[in-house]
Design a protein around this nucleic acid. Structure first.
Lengths: 223, 223
DNA sequence: TTTCGCCTACCGTGAAACCGGTAGGGCAGC
DNA sequence: GCTGCCCTACCGGTTTCACGGTAGGCGAAA
């Protein structure tokens, strides 16, 4: 029987292209596609799934949280993380969430096929550049578990608005809280994430899928 | 004779997947792949090319500048912009550079095939969501040409370092100029791009490929 | 030569960010 | 009850940003 695969990525074109790529392997069958973490959970609840190719940066629930919840309800499903970034923290978080593989989009398409075959057999697969950044962290015990800065819902909201370019006062208006409270959330965010200014917070939010790189209704960035 | 296509995107996996998608159409032949604007120019100089699927955000020379230079040397080549973002300014810039099509990665894979067929016949193709954001701008005359904020090399450098989270003083040290000079560059950047804070500059830099969403040697964003 | 754009550098002001502490209320768990 | 976490809010301080103007040096173009 063929391997029932779900593709999770917020870019439909990438999903379709990946589907074409995976179609080369008769043993693989893409049974569904998801554009967000919520959709992955819904699909897994509705039909049998063997393996999920999970993008990290997705709007709404991101790939890490989605993996955590997916495996809590469906321990048998294999998850392979698929991200544009080889960020060490992402890899650690995703492995901590229970994923069995992690490859970056900078790799060749064959890499994905190889990862799926490896993970299907119960082994763990990390592509070379990811493996290089992680090995050090895996060696020192504890870091894998210590490094999981869970954000609260409020912090996530504040982070998103910071990344959109709003000031503390504007964020306060939007969320109906005082600007001073927004400052506290920003400070806690920076402490939790070990980031030290708005540029880094913005990059983090974008890479994590908490904020898109450009606003959907962006009139234009130039004049 | 089949249509000679070049795929330009900094993600090898996306290129390979797209190649698999385009292989369904016998009339299309992907003759080369490029990971940057420079590579596109080199390929076009070395072999005959009919059409380029050009990603906007690429490290080094981005898709807009690459399109401009490519068409300056090879007026016969058709270019289709392929971006994750439907940012109005990107579309206008790319069309101004001479591209004949623009589709977002949020669209279906079939959309790309349709775009290629349309552009091959000499027509212009914009996917629905892009068309919606652009029509208004195309109606008021002049905006298409007025809206082309070319950045100087120095401004690009400063923008990149701002997006990486450095302060003016740190940027000044890095570039061996005074912090006050960095301030001027930042001010000119914001005026040219109609952006008003560091978060927006950071988003712009990432979307434009001037700065990656995560630092290559990023040890980890959490502690 | 003059003009223009770019890079360089400084002046100033007000707003916002950045960093620390304190503290009350709500709510869940031991 | 006590503890711990979260959200809320304010106090203080220094640094950086955001925005304005002015201005000299330099190289390319008209």
């Amino acid at each position: 029987m063929s391997l029932r695969i779900v593709l999770a990525d917020d870019h439909q074109m990438f999903r379709h292209a990946l589907r074409a790529l995976l179609a080369r392997e008769p043993a693989f069958e893409v049974v569904a596609e998801a554009a967000s973490g919520e959709e992955v959970l819904a699909i897994a609840a509705a039909q049998p799934v063997d393996l999920v190719c999970m993008d990290i940066a997705m709007p709404g629930m991101n790939g890490i949280e989605a993996t955590r919840r997916l495996l809590a309800e469906n321990p048998g499903i294999r998850v392979i993380g698929l991200s544009a970034f080889a960020d060490r923290q992402f890899v650690l978080d995703l492995l901590d969430a229970g994923a069995r593989g992690y490859i970056t989009k900078a790799e060749a398409g064959d890499e994905l096929l190889r990862a799926i075959r490896t993970v299907r057999e119960g082994r763990i697969y990390l592509c070379p550049d990811v493996a290089a950044t992680v090995t050090g962290a895996l060696l020192d015990r504890g870091s894998l578990y210590a490094a999981t800065p869970r954000l609260t819902e409020r912090e996530r909201q504040v982070l998103q608005l910071i990344a959109e370019g709003l000031t503390s006062a504007q964020i306060g208006d939007r969320l109906h809280i005082a600007a001073s409270t927004v400052d506290v959330h920003r400070r806690n965010l920076m402490r939790k994430l070990d980031l030290h200014n708005i540029a880094e917070l913005t990059r983090y939010a974008i890479a994590r899928g908490i904020s898109p790189a450009t606003r959907p209704a962006d009139g234009g960035a130039a004049g």
